[in-house]
Nucleic acid binder design. Sequence first.
DNA 1: CGGGATCCCATATGATACTG
DNA 2: CAGTATCATATGGGATCCCG
Lengths: 132, 132
Amino acid sequence: MTVRCGSGDHPEHDVYAALCPGREVLEALSGKWSALAIGALEAEPQRFTHIQRRLQGVSPKVLTRTLRQLEQFGFLTRTVIPAVPVRVEYALTELGRGAAQPLAQLRTWVETNMDSVRFQGQTEIGPTQRIH
Amino acid sequence: MTVRCGSGDHPEHDVYAALCPGREVLEALSGKWSALAIGALEAEPQRFTHIQRRLQGVSPKVLTRTLRQLEQFGFLTRTVIPAVPVRVEYALTELGRGAAQPLAQLRTWVETNMDSVRFQGQTEIGPTQRIH
DNA sequence: CGGGATCCCATATGATACTG
DNA sequence: CAGTATCATATGGGATCCCG
C-alpha cells in the first residue's frame, strides 16, 4: 500500500515531510525534460522521434530515460506498433493529463514572465558579518 | 537585453527552443528543493533555520545554494538584520509570489493524486523487437 | 545563527556511434 | 525508427566540521 506522510493530525500527503513518496513524484516531474516531455504529449500521442524534435537539444538516451521514468510512475504509456519499421507511440494516461495541467501553467508562467527575471551575475555575499 | 526564442513567426519565449533562457529558469524552479523553498515563503518571510526545519531533510549547504540561486533570478530577497546573533530573512519578491502559484498547484496536485501514482518497479522492455 | 569550506559520491546529462 | 552502448563531464546533493 501507499505510504502516507501527513504531518501530525491529518493523514494527507505532505511533500514537506522527509519520507513522503510525493517527493519522488515531484522530482520526477521536475526533471530537466519532464515538463517539456509531458507538454509535448498534451495534444495527442506522439512517436519518439517527434518528441525528440520537439524537445530541442535532448539526446536520445536522455529522452528515453525521461520517458521510461514517467511511464513507471504511470504518467504515460508506451505502445509498440508492429510494423516495418517499428513505431512506438507515447501517450499520456489519465494521470498524465492531470499532471500536465500544473506543468503547463508552470511553463506558461515562465514564458510570460521571462522579462521580469533577473539574469545578472552572482550576488556577492561572503560569510555573514558579525555585529560587535 | 533579454534573448528571445520564439519559434518562427512570433517573438514570444518558447521553452521548447534550445537556446531559450526560460529553460534556465524552469530548471531553477525545478530543483529538488526549489518548489518547496518557495512554498515555505508563501505566507511570510522566514529565517534560514525556519526554512531548513520546514524542508525536512535538506542540508544547510544545499539549502543555501538553493536560496542563493533563487535570489539570483530575483525570486526572493535575502536580508541581513544586524543583531546578535545575526538574523537573515528570506522573502519572496513580487516575481517570486508569481512563480509560487504554479508551483503550489504542482505540489497540491502531487499531494492529492499520490494514490493514483504507480510505484511498481521497472517496465522491462529491452531492445525494440523487429518485425520480420 | 547562518552559513562557509571541504571532501565525496551518485547520478543526471551529454555527444557520438552503432544496431535490431 | 527507436532506441542501446560507450565514454566523458558536470554538478546536484550530502556529510562533516568550522567560523564570525
